[in-house]
Amino acid sequence: MPRPAADLRPAPLAAEPMLPRAFRVAARRRETHDVFTLELEPADAPGEAFAFEPGQFNMLYVLGAGEVPISISGDPTRPGRLMHTVRAVGGVTRLLEGLKKGDSLGVRGPYGAPWPVLDAEGRDVVVVAGGIGLAPLRPLICQVLARRDRFGRVSIVFGTRSPADILLAKDLERWRSKFDVDVLLTVDHAPPGWRGHVGVVTALLPRAAFDPANARAFVCGPEVMMRFTVQELAHRGLPAASVHVTMERNMKCAIGLCGHCQYGPEFVCKDGPVFRFDRIERIFGVREL
């Protein structure tokens, strides 16, 4: 018996999950010599707010050049333009650096597991950021400060290379001016005139006030910096299950299909990039994993 003609047609393709959406640069500003912030809006719906959770990232696409995973640095409690704070270190990020107001780019996301901010309610919060690692933590800080009364003591410990490398300076100033937030800032080395802390970020941790039995730490920075930070936090008595870190691996598809961002059993793009530290503690020190 012949089949109906419809059966001969190939099955139609479902929507392509890797298709970007066109966005435009609504504003851009320089943070440091190699870090800049872009504010973006959808090309077809300029007023549309971009919903995301702290710690999530987008894939940003520059026509013909490629895509890069960049964490979202906006304030999730004040939905509006999509904000990315980017360090120009590679081909695509340098092209992003060159974008001007009105220029187009592709965006897909948000992707990834967020910082578990709710889990920190009722507890002390320690935010430890290294360099550009402050950018993915900014949404978390915004969310904590928006509901400040729900948290215990709040410390923001930020280390970067030199005073010239301090990004999000206005935010840091605003946070520092609050009487109920402890902002500790250090630079690895400083030229004359700098009156703040000098030394690695781990050396500042003993100055962060928290109750290790009832605290949550959120750590983001270069892997080496995080390695020594979690050691120092453990030294302070904070259990691995109270520490969250973000991992970075080569992300190509961002949706768990391409295999590039594997880190032991984890796919950094969908199981992370935020991990509770005890989940990856066993493999964290293994070289070349």
């Binding site: 393709l13 392509e16 298709l19 970007p20 959406r21 066109a22 090309a43 187009s104 592709g106």
Partner: peptide, 12 residues
């Protein structure tokens, strides 16, 4: 109007 993205329509 900016970038236009078109998914590959080629069905198998």
């Amino acid at each position: 109007g900016g970038l236009e993205f078109k998914p590959s329509a080629e069905a198998p």
